[in-house]
């Protein structure tokens, strides 16, 4: 990301990925505020527009009201509105934009991936492994989704692609036991990073959440400070239920951060703003495409500007 070329390349990818929501928001704001004053009606329309991006009722209302406070009854041009909203959203997101950096002194730095079914845990692990490997770290993965058919094979294929070893047992075996073995092996092979996959589970299933708590207990038998990161993988197309999802995972297993996937294409991503407001959990990375390069650190400015359909100025 230090390289300027690379940065603009990434930004355009993010923008292309978010193009649907951003062009929709941008166009929408354009049609509301062209040759019009900021009045009650246009504020309400703006609020609705923001709601359609999954920002949620409360956040949308607040953003629109903030805008009204400073510019009510004045002529505003659409670009100004977009700039102003982007700045507001950036302010909300800035504190949560923290990359997932393995701590070299931990050896292995243990990262546990959790989330509901189909959010993209296994794919995210594969992508992260590829990143860390490219940085010269020794990475190991643990196929802890012992429930879903072929989840282990899926991670093993990622193992082949990235050249990282995968610790696996057969489907149906105990996930906690597998995590234990994986940590022992990562220690003996002196891995820098250990990425542990888990089976997808809905947060309202108490038995499955208890199983996850057991995995944590077992990991902590080996290392009381582990897992060093407990990352919830969230599908960006998820609506307001994301709030309840994260609330429950936070309460029961104390997740430390988020990776938001599938922000490309049809996803809207406004939910990220609502989440940042409510939980202030770090957002480590966002996924905007299928390749490993499409999983990137989350930057508040890039995200908020592309959400509003603005250039990277």
């Amino acid at each position: 990301m230090s390289d300027e070329n690379k940065k603009s390349g990434w930004f355009s990818r993010l923008k292309a990925g978010l193009s649907r929501s951003s062009s929709k928001l941008g166009d929408g704001i354009g049609s509301i505020f062209t040759k019009r004053k900021l009045d009650d009606e246009s504020i309400e329309e703006l609020e609705e527009l923001l709601i359609t991006s999954d920002l949620g009722v409360a956040t949308s209302a607040r953003l629109a009201a903030n805008l009204a406070k400073t510019r009510f009854d004045k002529d505003v041009d659409p670009l100004e509105v977009r700039e102003s909203l982007a700045a507001e959203i950036e302010k909300i997101l800035e504190p949560v934009a923290l990359p997932l950096e393995p701590d070299g002194t931990k050896a292995p730095h243990i990262i546990l991936m959790v989330g509901v079914n189909g959010s993209g845990k296994t794919t995210t692990i594969g992508k992260l492994a590829s990143h860390y490997k490219a940085r010269g770290l020794k990475v190991m993965m643990a196929a802890g989704d012992t429930f879903r058919a072929a989840a282990i094979e899926q991670l093993q294929i990622w193992g082949e692609r990235t050249g990282c070893p995968v610790v696996a047992k057969e489907t149906g075996s105990d996930a906690a036991g597998l995590a234990y073995e994986a940590i022992e092996r990562a220690r003996s092979e002196k891995a820098d990073v250990l990425l542990i996959d888990t089976a997808g589970r809905l947060h309202n299933k108490s038995d499955l959440m208890a199983e996850l708590q057991k995995v944590l207990r077992v990991i902590r038998k080996l290392d009381a400070t582990a897992p060093h990161d407990i990352v919830l993988v969230l599908d960006a197309t998820t609506g307001q239920n994301a709030l309840s999802q994260i609330g429950t995972f936070k309460e029961l297993i104390d997740i430390t951060g988020l990776v938001v996937t599938k922000l490309d294409g049809s996803a809207r991503g406004g939910i990220l703003v609502a989440l940042a407001e409510k939980y202030s959990l770090p957002v480590h990375a966002i996924g905007v495409g299928e390749t490993a390069e499409d999983l990137r650190p989350f930057t508040a400015r890039d995200f908020s500007r592309s959400l509003m359909g603005l250039g990277n100025s």
């Binding site: 649907r20 709601i51 999954d54 998820t238 609506g239 239920n241 994301a242 406004g270």
Partner: peptide, 14 residues
């Protein structure tokens, strides 16, 4: 997915 947000209309429509 029953958890889908506002985008559900676009997905279904497309």
């Amino acid at each position: 997915d029953a958890m889908t947000g506002q985008d559900a209309v676009n997905v279904a429509d497309t």
